[in-house]
Design a protein around this nucleic acid. Structure first.
Length: 491
RNA sequence: GCUCCCAUCGUCUAGAGGCCUAGGACAACACCCUUUCACGGUGUAGACAGGGAUUCGAAUUCCCUUGGGAGUACCA
């Protein structure tokens, strides 16, 4: 049974990079008919907040990445928050202590610092001196360190540790360079590498797909798996947790980088899924875009739903290099999704971005028409805020280019004629056809005629179909605006 | 510093020795459509980081250089 997991740490809102990792795990699970587990890694109580936990839940759900087991819905291998699993880790650490794959360490931060200092002076890689192996008890509570070389020797012929990565192929590391790392802090809490292995083991995770920033952790974790395997074979553990699982398969994804090739961070703008959503990006577009970072469809059709992507997904085909997060394609994709949206859905989605205006000025039919005629150029939903500004309020402020486009004669004639017109969109179309033709004979280009009207009515030189705009605004407002613009044109 | 990973148009990528005078998408530019913007349509420009080696033949294999990224905590 394929079981994958995403294990975010709630020290911030769900990062777009984490979302991509979640997506690839989800795709892999869907493709293979496996299960997708959500685990919250809130071991670091200092930085953890419930608000972030909620943000992670909400963002994942919004993206359509629903989990089969997790802190909120439970499951057979819970609890799914590490903070509720604190009692688990010491017993496994004890097993390691007993089997000699781990040992207690009383070194002080100062001693450790001195060792590191020395290593950098000698231009050597820092490796813990292991001086606590077999040492007498020291002061205070000890940390527990993992005995890397002992484990390596017990399970491998040389110091070289190799595994076959699902995306990168064979990866090798000399374990002599790893150094005995801490698995239990002196305060009794587990370190990341230890907690992850214990959790993944007990949760029967079969495939671990994550960012390549974890490659060095993977070597450590494989060693822990091996050392723990024996302990897990003990009858009392089998009874509690079932038979030990084989070592999971690992797959490491390239990272998502900012356009300057550095880590994607706040100073580059939006980083959290919720930031993108606030700016008016559709989660469908977001998920589609992020899937294309490292993966490409076999049929060349890039706009695809998560389900379609899952059907076509193969982890071994995922690119192993980093990719840069550029907005151009995301923007295009978002606009494509906006175009495909149902009108009612779009009307609802746009409402928050129209909050500064009084939507009661419009009937529902008028609002529908407004959305129909303004949706075309939207790249993000928030564009509507400025694009639809001239539909609300009594008058408009003329932009400089709009002032240039005004034409006193055209406006005067319009005011005269339109007073008798029926402000129905169809009717306006016809009337304006004639109006343009009339001025064309006077030597005014149809384009300029329309421009003058648009400028007077909307204050802008660009925008939605002007007949539809007039119909929505109604005769009274249109004539008032034209009247006001007429005086400005005369100046 | 040390260790590991990566390297095709500006960006995302196709490409698993001859199908490649390197294909697609976004962006750019031009033209068409048009009452503006936009949409849409049609085109143009644009890349195998460099050097060796293997081979009849290399974007594809190997090595070196260069460049970029990551890790190097009693953070996760």
């Amino acid at each position: 049974m394929v079981r994958v997991r995403i294990a975010p740490s709630p020290s911030g809102n769900l990062h777009i990079g984490t979302a991509r990792t979640a997506l690839f795990n989800y795709l892999f699970a869907k493709k293979t008919g496996g299960e997708f587990v959500l685990r919250i890694e809130d071991t670091d109580l200092e930085r953890t907040s419930q608000e972030y936990v909620k943000n992670i839940f909400d963002s994942l759900k919004a993206l359509g990445l629903n989990w089969d087991e997790g802190p909120d819905i439970g499951g057979p291998y819970g609890p799914y928050s590490q903070s509720e699993r604190f009692n688990l880790y010491p017993e496994f650490a004890k097993k390691l202590l007993l089997s000699g794959f781990a040992y207690e360490c009383w070194c002080t931060p100062e001693e450790l610092e001195a060792e590191k200092e020395l290593a950098t002076q000698n231009k050597q890689a820092y490796v813990y001196s292991r001086k606590c192996i077999g040492a007498p008890r020291g002061e205070g509570a000890p940390a527990i360190r993992f005995n890397v070389s002992k484990t390596q020797k017990a399970f491998h012929e040389s110091s070289m540790l190799t595994f076959n990565d699902m995306v990168k192929g064979e990866l090798t590391q000399d374990t002599d360079l790893i150094g005995d790392f801490v698995i239990m802090k002196s305060n009794g809490t587990p370190t990341y590498n230890f907690a992850v292995v214990v959790d993944d083991m007990l949760m029967k995770i079969s495939h671990i797909i994550r960012g390549e920033d974890h490659i060095s952790n993977t070597f450590k974790q494989i060693l822990i798996y091996e050392a723990l395997g024996e302990a897990l074979s003990a009858p009392e553990f089998v009874e509690l947790y079932g038979p030990p699982q084989p070592l999971p398969q690992f797959g490491h994804l390239g990272m998502i980088l900012a356009p300057d090739r550095s880590k994607l961070s706040k100073r580059h703008g939006a980083t959290a899924v919720s930031d993108f959503v606030e700016h008016g990006y559709l989660t469908e577009a977001l998920v589609n875009f992020v899937a294309l970072l490292g993966w490409s469809p076999s049929d060349g059709q890039e706009i695809k739903s998560v389900d379609e992507i899952a059907a076509d997904f193969r982890i071994s085909e995922v690119s192993s290099s980093n990719s840069i997060f550029e907005y151009d394609k995301l923007n295009w994709m978002n606009s494509q999704y906006i175009k495909k949206m149902g009108i009612e859905t779009l009307k609802a989605a746009l409402r928050p971005y129209l909050a500064k205006y009084d939507l009661n000025e419009l009937t529902d039919a008028q609002y529908t028409r407004l959305v129909e005629i303004t949706r075309e150029p939207l790249t993000v939903l928030s564009d509507i805020t400025s694009d639809a500004a001239y539909f609300f309020g009594a008058g408009v402020e003329l932009e400089p280019e709009a002032k240039d486009a005004l034409n006193g004669e055209v406006l005067a004639e319009f005011a005269k004629q339109a007073a008798d017109w029926d402000f129905d969109e169809e009717a306006l179309h016809e009337k304006l056809d004639g109006f343009r033709a009339y001025f064309k004979e006077q030597g005014v280009k149809p384009k300029d005629t329309m421009w003058a009207l648009r400028a007077a009515i909307t204050g802008r030189t660009r925008g939605a179909d002007i007949c539809a705009v007039m119909a929505i605004l109604g005769k009274e407002k249109v004539l008032a605006r034209v009247e006001k613009a007429k005086s400005q044109a005369a100046l």
